[in-house]
Write a protein that binds this DNA or RNA. Structure first.
Lengths: 209, 209, 209, 209
DNA sequence: GACTAAACGAGACGGTACGTCGAGTCTTTGT
DNA sequence: ACAAAGACTCGACGTACCGTCTCGTTTAGTC
């Protein structure tokens, strides 16, 4: 939850600062990386004074998270191709494209590098991720409605199964992630879904089919 | 394993220091977390002087990575139950147990929190992971030999498919990981393997079937 | 006078710090001596933080020199008794008193102990000394005007001849310097001056006599 | 075997070390200056291990003083021209030459830069100086015997009067010291001596003339 | 259109940790 | 038995950045 000021007096004023600092933060992050990201540099890049930054964000980490959250929460194209498989493929490709770029790499790294301390931050990271998942859920829901997937299919589970191998490669192994990776993920996910392995919790203890 | 000292003189000498500092590092990490991990504190805890630490490790981060690498490269029980499914289940459970403990959490976090800068460090992290995977591969190989899995099954691929959902939950969503998570992962992996989706690269361009 | 404010803001602010640190520096110097003079101790004594000291003075040595320069450049009573001999005597006594005290000893020692490296510092030391000489010159000038000394008498030369034996004893031999030393110096100087040995450079190549 | 080795082991060995270290010390001092003179460098330059240096000299400062004392106590030409004035002139010129060279400057500086702490060191410095003076005293004594100077002339006083202005310039003002400086010093000293101002302490009281 | 209060610019400051350097000491090993 | 080799302790150095504080200077909204 970024700065939510109820319309007191200062309305149109700080918005420009906020935007400028956000941009500067992400830019610095991309240029120098997390370790070398100083508040002072960000401030200077934003054409603003250090104190001003501290007036709006308690912390360097909070600033980062806020900036990234905003940066990520933008345009996520939720695909709707009419078939779950192509939808998932579009989704997977979009993730791959987002994070296999240098920019994406930097962002990913930053989200983990400024992480452990402050549960607040881990929480922020989780939220960003959850948010993205939530936005994609309708694709699964539609598939269920279309009868492509079983009624008790767990949308979140489907999506997690889809993205897990991609993130694994992005975060742990250094393998290049490309369309093939994405496609494989789709196939595995579809196989699992069709096998009835991605159902809602209550159905985890499989009785019949 | 990380620091391979060619048998110079100081074999029996510095070894004690090395061990003590490693232990102190991990201990501090668990106690205070990455952010509050000071070289000075580590040194003190190891009953050693700060400069001595700097003589052996260039950097705070390098020290951490080295300590963790050693800490992780220990006892990994490679299961051999006679059936691939139970082997995978054992493997998955072992990961879950390792990292769902507070200790494991701290280590995981640390491995990512000291990350982005120094590709050296990302590399170290990758190596630790790869190492663990490599040790588990025989389980898959044996299954192939037993005829449980297709001849062209990609062992690494199988294992990645297995662990991906677990790490996803550990790193991105904050969901509790438990036996259920592990079991689900096993089932998905088995389904994918049986569907012929986890074959070696050359077979990725499907000809037959 | 609103327009006459070149010295921007930080005038009244840092001045207090500057003074406090100067005082603390001299105090520490006197208490512990040059070798044991720590920036940290000085800072603490001044009720200021180490970094603040480093913000204003590049170096421990620079700090010392600066502090001493200020300390020495204070009130130097230029005597004016109406006769050159008594003026010189007053001057000599003043030097003796200044430097034969423990305090003076410490300062003297410090001025040389923090010396050789950094020509900057040798320069500073020279300046302090020159400054003191320059302030005393009027005494000689007046004597010339009164006809006590020859018109081409070199004031600086006179003063150097006066102080040389005193500093010799202070710096090289460890003899106690007292009034007798001072008086002897005066007599020697007077004798030399009257013998026309302390004339300006142009007269250094003596033609007459 | 015991009789076959007259200059046993520890005698011939240590002497060489001593000499080498002394030389290395002075060399380092001249090259880098006092501030940058480390025991380790000296040891290395002498082809000896640090520990060995510490076995023979308690201290860095003690080492320096010892080395310099040896270095200075060498060849001091005590002039004997048959006339006090020319003797003094020779003496003064010799001092000027010794210390106006870069080498001499470095030595001088070093003698003061390692000074304040350890009264032991100030003492050593004093001794070096006293030694030089003592060696020169015969020149004055001979002059007294020849009847050039009054019987109660204080030889030490004469010499100090002679060297004082030279050292003043060397240590305090940065003026170049040359033959002129030396000659002036001689003239002043002679004037003072002839005026009966440089007599032994007991004669300081009587005002006869 | 002037007035007032919040936001900003500027910059020093206290504080924590960093990584470095050199002085001396201690231990191990070779001769 | 001695000394070369080198690791270790200790203390200080100077640096970087964090986050705080104070004080003057805009500037935006209200009257």
């Amino acid at each position: 939850m970024p700065t939510a000021e109820p319309p007191a007096r200062p309305i149109g004023r700080g918005a420009k600062v906020r935007t400028a600092v956000h941009a500067a933060t992400v830019a610095e992050l991309l240029d120098k990386g997390y370790a070398a990201l100083t508040v002072e540099n960000v401030a200077q890049r934003a054409g603003v004074h250090k104190t001003t930054v501290y007036r709006r964000w308690v912390d360097r980490d909070r600033l980062l998270v806020d900036a990234l959250a905003e940066h990520m929460s933008a345009d996520i194209p939720v695909p709707d191709t009419g078939a779950i498989e192509t939808d998932l493929r579009a989704l997977a490709h979009s993730i791959v494209q987002t994070f296999s770029s240098p920019t994406g790499q930097a962002i990913l790294a930053a989200m983990f590098t400024g992480a452990a301390h402050l549960p607040e931050i881990a929480e922020a990271r989780r939220q960003v991720f959850d948010d993205r998942l939530a936005r994609a859920e309708p694709a699964v829901t539609r598939a269920i409605d279309r009868g492509e997937l079983a009624r008790d299919t767990d949308a979140a589970e489907v999506l997690k199964t889809l993205v897990a191998p991609i993130y694994l490669r992005l975060l742990l192994t250094a393998e290049p992630v490309d369309e093939t990776t994405a496609d494989n993920a789709v196939q595995v996910t579809m196989a699992a879904a069709r096998a009835g392995l991605l159902r809602t919790a209550s159905a985890d203890v499989p009785a019949s089919e």
